[in-house]
């Protein structure tokens, strides 16, 4: 438990200092928050998902969830989740970790042996921080087996794109010759990468929802109408209580997602599916209530509420929306041995 608190406290202090609304605003205009990134790197957070024996922090699931929830709480405009996962996969594959932010993709990419190592060629779309990353980690099938390759920044061209929250989601055109040490058998296949990315988004959504709720509760206490704080009205209290229920569910689902990523193991992909579907559903409800409570001011560009609500609307559809993951879960439940829904539920 001490470890949970230490990482959470460090993250909270650092994010409060560097992940400011100004940094988030600037990031929406394409400015990468270098100071924030350096602070996160120096704290060792990029190595959070790498086991201690491999030189990482080896954090437990609750710490991993806490760290990513907090980064989303502050709308930190950096590829922390992507870099954490990419670093873990590189470590598992035995590829040396480069410095700087990493992009992570599973693309339509071909690996061909060349005298100097491998030629990597292809495309990856909607890649988080594709243009601003220091390198790309790509998972691809080669001769029917999953491979992982580390491509330096000069090995791909980026066409800038943005998600609904103005986070960079770039299309990459990859063409590079990379040394043998930059390619290895991948610890995950395309499917395994997808559910891990979905799990990380679920955790981020939980953190963004916590912020939306906190902003709303604070605003309800400050904003007076009809001679009293609006939080004194039962209608407002009931709406916020309803949002709190969704946030509690999301935080719990985020813990499941972290267990899936950190512990892996049997049913990990099911846990990730549960988390992405449940957090995605909660996201729309919590964002809606937060805006209703905030009234017109929360709908203005100058108000920080948008930093989390726009992310929620973007993130719930990234790496598979609720419909996609619910269908996966339904298929697993219907195929479960014993013909009972219950057996799957108790196993997950």
């Amino acid at each position: 438990m001490a470890e949970v608190d230490l990482i959470a406290e460090t993250a909270e202090r650092l994010l409060a200092d560097f992940a400011t609304p100004q940094a988030a605003d600037a990031a929406e205009n394409g400015v990468f928050p270098d100071a924030l990134w350096r602070a996160v790197e120096e704290a060792g957070f990029l190595l959070a998902l790498i086991p201690e024996e491999a030189g990482g922090l080896g954090v437990d699931p609750e710490s991993a969830a806490g760290l990513l929830r907090r980064s989303a709480y502050h709308a930190a405009p950096i590829p922390l989740a992507e870099t954490m996962l990419a670093a873990r996969l590189l470590a598992q594959a035995g590829i040396n970790l480069p410095a700087g932010p990493l992009s992570l993709a599973c693309g339509d990419v071909e690996l061909t042996p060349v005298p100097s190592g491998w030629r990597v060629q292809g495309k990856a779309t909607r890649v988080a921080w594709g243009a601003q990353s220091a390198a790309l980690v790509v998972v691809t099938a080669q001769d029917g087996r999953a491979h992982i390759a580390l491509v330096p920044r000069d090995g791909y061209a980026a066409t800038a794109g943005r998600n609904l929250a103005d986070e960079p989601r770039d299309d990459l055109s990859i063409a590079a010759d990379i040394p043998p040490a930059s390619v290895a058998a991948s610890p995950v296949d395309a499917e395994g990468l997808l559910w891990r990315l979905a799990a990380l988004r679920a955790i981020q959504m939980a953190g963004a929802m916590e912020r939306a709720l906190d902003l709303s509760v604070a605003y309800a206490g400050e904003r007076s109408q009809f001679g009293k704080p609006i939080g004194r009205f039962q209608a407002i209290q009931q709406a916020l209580a309803s949002a709190a229920g969704q946030v509690a569910a999301a935080v719990s689902a985020a813990s499941l997602a972290a267990e899936a990523v950190v512990n892996d193991g049997e049913n990990a992909s099911l846990r990730a599916a549960v988390a992405k579907a449940r957090c995605g559903e909660a996201a729309g409800s919590v964002a809606g209530i937060a805006h209703q409570i905030h009234g017109a001011i929360g709908f203005s560009h100058e108000h920080p509420l948008r930093l989390v609500t726009r992310r929620l609307w973007a993130w719930r559809d990234e790496h598979g929306p609720e419909a996609f993951w619910n269908r996966r879960l339904g298929e697993a439940a219907l195929a479960a041995p014993g013909g009972s829904l219950w057996h799957l539920i108790t196993a997950a």
Binding site: A253, A277, R278, L329, G330, L341, A348
Partner: peptide, 15 residues
């Protein structure tokens, strides 16, 4: 199938 999956997601979380 999607509705069954949603029940699973909700039940696992509530549980």
């Amino acid at each position: 199938t999607e509705a069954v999956g949603r029940f699973v997601a909700h039940l696992v979380t509530l549980r």
